[in-house]
Simulated scan of single mutants.
Amino acid sequence: MYAIIETGGKQYKVEKDDVIFVEKLAVDENSSVDFKVVAVSGDNGLKVGAPYVEGASVQGKVLKNGKAKKINIWTYKAKKGESRKMGHRQPYTKVQIEAINA
């Protein structure tokens, strides 16, 4: 059994006990979170929502809030001698899927 969930403007295919990294959520560690279900597949086949499946839910447990590795960005303008360095660390939430209720 798997489900397609939506969070942070992205969609993820998840199964029970999967660990996923999603866009940062405003929840504390060791708390539970519910996700919107776009589609769910089970014994009865695939059920697709319009836009979400009614009565279906996916529960997850927040394991960690953190930041990804730093990426460095260089911008450069040719023949002007202009360049600058920027960095970015994307925040994330690490979630373990506990149950898929269809």
Rank of each mutant, 00 (worst) to 15 (best):
M1W: 12
Y2M: 06
Y2E: 12
A3W: 04
I5A: 00
E6M: 01
E6G: 00
T7S: 04
T7I: 12
G8R: 04
G8S: 03
K10P: 08
Q11H: 12
Q11C: 09
Q11R: 11
Q11V: 04
Y12S: 05
Y12P: 06
K13Q: 10
K13M: 11
K13Y: 07
V14I: 03
E15P: 09
E15F: 13
K16Y: 09
K16S: 08
V19R: 12
V19M: 12
I20G: 05
F21C: 14
F21V: 15
E23M: 15
K24E: 10
K24D: 07
K24N: 15
K24F: 14
L25E: 11
L25I: 12
L25H: 08
V27S: 05
D28I: 12
E29S: 03
E29H: 10
N30M: 02
N30P: 14
N30W: 10
S31I: 14
S31F: 13
S31A: 13
S31Y: 08
S32F: 13
S32E: 15
S32Q: 15
V33R: 02
D34M: 08
F35P: 09
F35N: 01
V37C: 08
V37W: 03
A39N: 05
V40I: 01
V40A: 05
S41D: 08
S41R: 12
S41G: 15
G42Q: 08
G42T: 02
D43K: 15
D43E: 15
D43W: 13
D43G: 14
N44S: 08
L46P: 07
L46Y: 03
K47G: 04
K47M: 03
K47T: 03
V48T: 03
G49I: 01
A50S: 10
A50Y: 10
A50R: 06
P51N: 03
Y52D: 02
Y52V: 04
V53P: 03
V53Y: 01
E54I: 05
G55K: 00
A56T: 09
A56I: 05
S57E: 03
V58I: 00
V58F: 00
V58Q: 01
V58W: 04
Q59G: 07
Q59P: 15
G60Y: 01
K61Q: 05
V62M: 05
L63A: 04
K64D: 13
K67V: 14
K67F: 10
A68D: 14
K69C: 10
K70I: 07
K70Q: 07
I71M: 15
N72R: 14
I73K: 09
T75S: 04
Y76Q: 12
Y76E: 09
Y76H: 03
A78G: 10
A78P: 11
A78Q: 14
K79I: 08
K79M: 05
K79V: 09
K80N: 06
G81V: 03
E82I: 13
S83A: 13
R84K: 12
R84Q: 09
K85Y: 05
M86C: 14
M86N: 14
G87H: 11
H88M: 01
H88R: 02
R89C: 13
P91F: 07
P91W: 04
K94L: 05
K94W: 06
Q96E: 12
I97Y: 00
A99S: 13
A99Y: 14
A99E: 15
I100A: 00
I100F: 11
I100Y: 01
N101Y: 12
N101E: 06
